[in-house]
Amino acid sequence: MVISQIIFYMLAAFTLLSALFVVFSKNPIYSVLWLILCFFSIAGHFVMLNAQFLAVVHIIVYSGAIMVLFLFTVMLLNLNSETEPHKPTLLKFAAVLSGGALFLIIIAAVRSTMPVPYVAPQLSEVGYVKNIGMKLYRDYTLPFEVASILFLSAMIGSVVLAKKERFN
C-alpha cells in the first residue's frame, strides 16, 4: 500500500467520523467544533489532490469566517444547554432509513460511470495559484465581479434582517 493511500484512508475516516459527530452530538457547540475539524480534513483532501490554492481558501473562509459566525450565533442565542427537543423515535428511524436509501440510490446510479482517466503529471498542476488565477481573471471575470455584488447584497440583507426594529 502506498503512503498516499494510507493518508487518504486516514483523512477519509476522520472526515466521515467528524461529519457523523456533527449530526449526532447533542450540544450545538460540540457540533460546531466537530464541523471545524471536518473542514480541516477536507482541506487536507484538497492538498492531497494538488489543489493548494483551494485548500488555503477553504481554511480561511470556512474555518476562519463561517465557523466563527456559527459559534458566535450559538453563543449569542445561548443554545449551549441541552434543551433541544428531539423528534419522535419513528421519525428518527425514518430519517436514517431515507438517508441510507439515498446513499444506495446514488451509489447504484454512479456505479456504471466510466472512471476518469489519469492525465500526464505536467497537466495535473491545475490547482496552482497561477493556473487558477489565469482561469479566474481571464475567462470568469464577469462572474467574479457579480460575486462581489452578491457579497454586498448579502451584507446589506443580513444587517437589515438582524437589526432591531426600533421605530414602530
Binding site: 489543489a51 463561517i66 459566525l69 475567462d139 457579497f151
Partner: peptide
C-alpha cells in the same frame, strides 16, 4: 484534478462565495 481541467476548481471557488453569503443571511 483527475481530468486536468481548472474550471472545476473555479466553480468550487464560486460555491464557497455563495456558501459564505448564504450563511450570513441564514444566521441573520
Amino acid at each position: 484534478s483527475y481530468a486536468g481541467n481548472a474550471e472545476g476548481q473555479v466553480f468550487v471557488f464560486f460555491i464557497m462565495v455563495v456558501a459564505a453569503a448564504e450563511v450570513a443571511v441564514g444566521l441573520a
